[in-house]
Design a protein around this nucleic acid. Structure first.
Lengths: 192, 192
DNA sequence: TCGCTTGTGTTAGAACTTCTAACAAGAGAG
DNA sequence: CTCTCTTGTTAGAAGTTCTAACACAAGCGA
């Protein structure tokens, strides 16, 4: 089955897949990854349950595609912000980074706290997708002479504050998240 | 119902709750939070399904207790390591931190990437539990004169590398996690 | 135009899940 | 001994993912 020679069919399939993912993103936005239900998506699209299994092998495949998409959008957001920046590019990178994380926290979590039980961070499309983010970062920090340690260190520092902010660890102890983030970024800029 | 005057009864209840949580931790260890099933726990304990709802109002309450317990154990692990340290206490803190995260990654994730849909990071017991971790950190970094920014900054940096390591972002791009962590810690020590 | 293949939808249902309701039976207190 | 409180049971509702079997429409070849 599924030789799928007709380009019309292929286009249609792709369209349906996009629709499914769009609804899944809505469910992700309010409720998190656990709230994504194949059944509910089908109902909202006006089709009935198992129809969607013609387009996705299973729920995990759908989730996996959301992760890859999120990586792409994240990388794109970083790239456009960095390229359109007139001032310090590191500051631009960090700002865009946090902007994405705060605008779509559940989607950001998808990248760094994968909820998939049998999640494999080394799978081909995932590594390729995450490399795009690395490329943007490497572009900002210059070619890595130390095997990427400097880039990853900066990555870790940016992600660290944001991760705590998303977890609510700042507001729960009455600390100004904005202030901590700015402080951290200035320290980062200073160190480079 | 449930005046629960008898201390024997109370002890028995507490014992059962501990047993339930112990099995839940097994399921958490292999499979993550999503793999925790009330039904499966009951089966493994030799009782049948809904019996456990006499001890936990629902699955979320059980998950919530696991989070609080994890916070306590995490704080305790940090405290004993820091106190028993002869050398640099910051290094000891960071080492213990990473040790806990690598030994029980799913449990660590429970702390910083809560999987509960209606998760409230500001709930009383949660804030209290996380404050214990803060106390240990504050003890290492000295009294906070800047509203805790310095402590949280260090917290963010330590958590940042570990979070990326747990996510597989290092190995997937062929970077030595050990090296990045050591580099980050030395930088942190140097900055203070 | 006839028929055949391919794709896509349907419903039925298996095997799970959480969780409620009703009931049975044991333990402790008076 | 009795009465109440607590804890277990089974039945079942409502939900989930996902498979199997079936129906139907579209497009292509003869």
């Amino acid at each position: 089955m599924a030789i799928r020679q007709s380009p019309m069919r292929a286009r249609f399939r792709e369209q349906v897949r996009e629709d499914v993912k769009a609804v899944a993103l809505e469910q992700l936005a309010d409720g998190g990854a656990a709230a994504i239900s194949v059944n509910a998506i089908a109902k909202q699209l006006g089709v009935s349950g198992p129809a969607l299994y013609r387009y996705f092998a299973n729920r995990d495949e759908l989730l996996g595609e959301l992760v890859v998409d999120a990586y792409h959008d994240f990388a794109a957001a970083l790239a456009t912000e960095v390229e359109g920046s007139r001032g310090n590019r590191l500051r631009a990178l960090a700002t865009a980074w946090r902007g994405f994380a705060l605008a779509e926290p559940h989607r950001y979590r998808l990248l760094f706290a994968p909820p998939l039980p049998g999640y494999d961070a080394h799978s081909e499309p995932l590594v390729a997708a995450s490399r795009r983010v690395m490329d943007v970062a490497t572009d900002v920090f210059g070619p890595s002479d130390d095997g990427g340690t400097r880039v990853l260190s900066a990555w870790a520092r940016i992600h660290g504050v944001i991760s705590l902010e998303l977890g609510g660890n700042f507001t729960s102890m009455g600390v100004d998240a904005d202030g901590v983030f700015r402080h951290e970024i200035e320290a980062l800029v200073h160190d480079l």
